[in-house]
Nucleic acid binder design. Structure first.
Length: 277
DNA sequence: TAAAATGTTCTCTT
DNA sequence: AAAGAGAACATTTT
């Protein structure tokens, strides 16, 4: 779940709860050291006695600024999230906690243990080392055209590549392609410039909406494909996947190894020419 | 119960 | 060499 909108939501939450509080201790669940990219002792030494003074986000990475100019780096993997808590019992699946001197603590909850924790002195160098492309929220159509140029793969895996558009995840790609009437298996070179511009506009609009809704997908505006995703059968509007535009069936397919929702009617079959209303 | 799951990274082809 | 495809990663949920 933690794609760009979730991470941006976490970042804002982090700024609300965690700034300017002296850090007392760092605790890592036994076994979870595997998820640390620096030795636990080094991480502890970097944090204890210091405070957080700000934050930045690039793609799905959250960078927490430490008051000496260094950065705590968090990537939430598939299931990570932050929770500030004050009682003795930490939230379920707390793998790592940062205790503050005020008695409260920040938990990294990560049921499936795919998150990663790191430390860096230099944000820009870190971004380059991780090969992060332009942030999906702020990138321009030109950025996107450049990033896609020369690619032979399908558009869905291309957009999922963090070097192309940092922050795009599985549901966002499906939503972008749905809203721009593009089949996810379309080859990148089959796309016209105009379609790339449409994708960039849709991408930005979708991300802005998702952030405004704090990534609570079920309450998204009507017409969003996402509203039918991750919804149990008995809670779904019509009891079946139905396209909000043409009322045809929404199909579930596997594209580039990822679960993919699409409307075959609106998004054509794979060809560059699609039925447009 | 077995299968699938949001993301990244490694390895093996082409 | 570089790009793409697919598996692997750890665990929980359906």
């Amino acid at each position: 779940m933690p794609e760009l909108p979730e991470v941006e939501t976490y970042r804002r939450y982090f700024e609300e709860v965690a700034l300017h509080l002296p850090i007392e201790e760092l605790t890592v669940e036994p076994g979870y050291e595997k998820r640390l990219l620096v030795p636990e002792a080094e991480l502890r030494a970097a944090l204890v006695g210091r405070t957080f003074v700000g934050s930045e986000r690039r793609g799905k990475y959250l960078f927490a600024a430490i008051d000496d100019g260094r950065w705590l780096v968090l990537h939430f993997g598939m299931t990570g999230r932050l929770q500030y808590f004050g009682d003795e019992t930490p939230p379920q699946f707390t793998r790592l906690r940062i205790d503050f001197e005020n008695g409260y603590a920040l938990a990294l909850r990560d049921p499936r243990k795919f998150a990663r924790v790191d430390l860096t002195d230099d944000l820009e160098a870190y971004r380059q080392r991780r090969k992060l492309g332009p942030d999906a929220l702020t990138m321009t159509a030109d950025d996107l055209r450049r990033a896609l140029h020369g690619k032979k793969t399908m558009i869905k895996p291309a957009l999922l590549d963090q070097r192309v558009a940092a922050g795009v995840g599985n549901w966002i790609v499906d939503e972008v392609l749905f809203q721009t009437y593009i089949h996810p298996e379309t080859r990148v070179y089959e796309l016209e410039d105009g379609q790339i511009e449409e994708m960039q506009r849709a991408l930005r609009r979708i991300l802005e909406v998702a952030i405004a809704y704090e990534a609570h997908y079920r309450t998204f505006p009507a017409g969003y494909l996402i509203r039918n995703r991750w919804v149990k059968d008995d809670e779904r509007d019509e009891g079946a996947y139905v396209c909000p535009r043409c009322a045809g069936p929404i199909v579930y397919a596997r594209v580039g190894g990822r679960g993919t929702f699409l409307c075959e009617t609106c998004q054509g079959t794979s060809a560059p020419h699609k039925a447009r209303p």
